[in-house]
Design a protein around this nucleic acid. Structure first.
Lengths: 195, 195
DNA sequence: GCCGGGTGTACGTTATCACGTACACCCGGC
DNA sequence: GCCGGGTGTACGTGATAACGTACACCCGGC
């Protein structure tokens, strides 16, 4: 699988901007009015003669009905990465076992993990993944059984199939108060990477 | 004349950069060396005193092991939101049924959906959710059965438990070439919406 | 107290971004 | 031929981004 490049690749959104502009059937002056960026500037950017400021680039993107991150992504190419079932990173053990399903690439936007909680078990014990950074957001799906989410002083009872969304930097853990094993899928997005 | 106010949203990657840098336990000079951007410049960017060039912003992003488009993604806070199993938004039908498990909130960072494909079925047919916007990223987990992911001219065979990550704005669909029903969990992160 | 070694920030200079104006060019009408 | 009205680009100026240096600050050692 392709590995993310770490090199200082020069960005050249110019051709992309030109293609998008022409696809929308806009002249430089049309886009200038839509974006609030002067036509000569647009021309220079399209030809790669200058590297626009984030402010300017953002205005250009908006003039093309895009967000800047979208415009940039178009030039960053795609990566397809497969993690086979047997290649999962495993952890925990005992009453709480978990597997991380997404690849350990830097810049990974969402980490998907699968947790198996024995009766009476809870997450957040020793050996579990560390608490998430500020700004992270978590989505959890109860795949089997029933669970309790304790978060920020509140307790939410979740049944099989229920899905919950919350800020992952709040103090939280899951408990399995039942006599049956419970399985939980957790998605943490905006995972910040420690060095 | 009067500048259009359609793009008056100011980019403020400063706090984000600072948070990421501190999360990686880097000093300004550390990041300066990793990114090739001078420390004083980094300081100014973090404090929002200047709007960096795309070149500079890209170098900063790379110093943080991110792509620029990832760095630019903006996030909004949120609350705890539970979607009960019986409250899911359903769609599709016939050979391909799906449910969206996450709540339809603005600022939702990751959308989780569950797809059931009958033998011979494929996603991307009429009635399916629309193609994802540029910049979206998708994580898919084969919950049951076996599938083929066709993306960008390539075909990847996925078995039960396999997990795949890719850019969701690439042309893609899933097929079920087997004689058994297959179940797929899909997570689309960074679903950006037009303003 | 006095130091190094670390942090982040203010200063002054150079490079260049971004603007407005003006230009060269290509077409259809007349 | 000569025009407008349209395109995209070169020019010169003011603004500012980006740099290197130097500063003020906080700590742990001694």
């Amino acid at each position: 699988m392709a590995v993310l490049e770490n090199s200082e690749r020069v960005i050249h959104i110019g051709p992309r901007v030109r293609a998008l502009r022409e696809a929308m059937d806009l002249s430089l002056r049309d886009l200038a009015e839509r974006s609030g960026v002067s036509a000569p500037m647009l021309s220079q950017v399209e030809r790669g003669e200058t590297s626009p400021t984030l402010q300017i680039a953002s205005r250009i993107a908006h003039g093309l009905d895009l967000r800047l991150s979208q415009l940039l992504r178009l030039d960053e190419g795609g990566v397809v990465s497969v993690v086979r079932a047997q290649d999962r990173r495993r952890g925990g053990g005992g009453k709480h076992a978990f597997e991380i399903l997404t690849p350990p690439l830097p810049g990974q936007r969402a980490e998907l993990s699968r947790h198996v909680l024995a009766p009476g078990a809870r997450t957040g014990e020793q050996g579990d993944p560390p608490m998430h950074e500020a700004g992270a957001r978590e989505v959890a799906l109860v795949e089997r059984g029933s669970l309790v989410l304790a978060i920020d002083g509140e307790r939410h009872t979740l049944s099989e199939g229920d899905c919950v969304t919350f800020d992952a930097d709040l103090e939280h853990h899951f408990e399995n108060p039942t006599r049956e094993e419970a399985v939980l899928l957790a998605i943490v997005s905006a995972g910040l990477r420690r060095s």
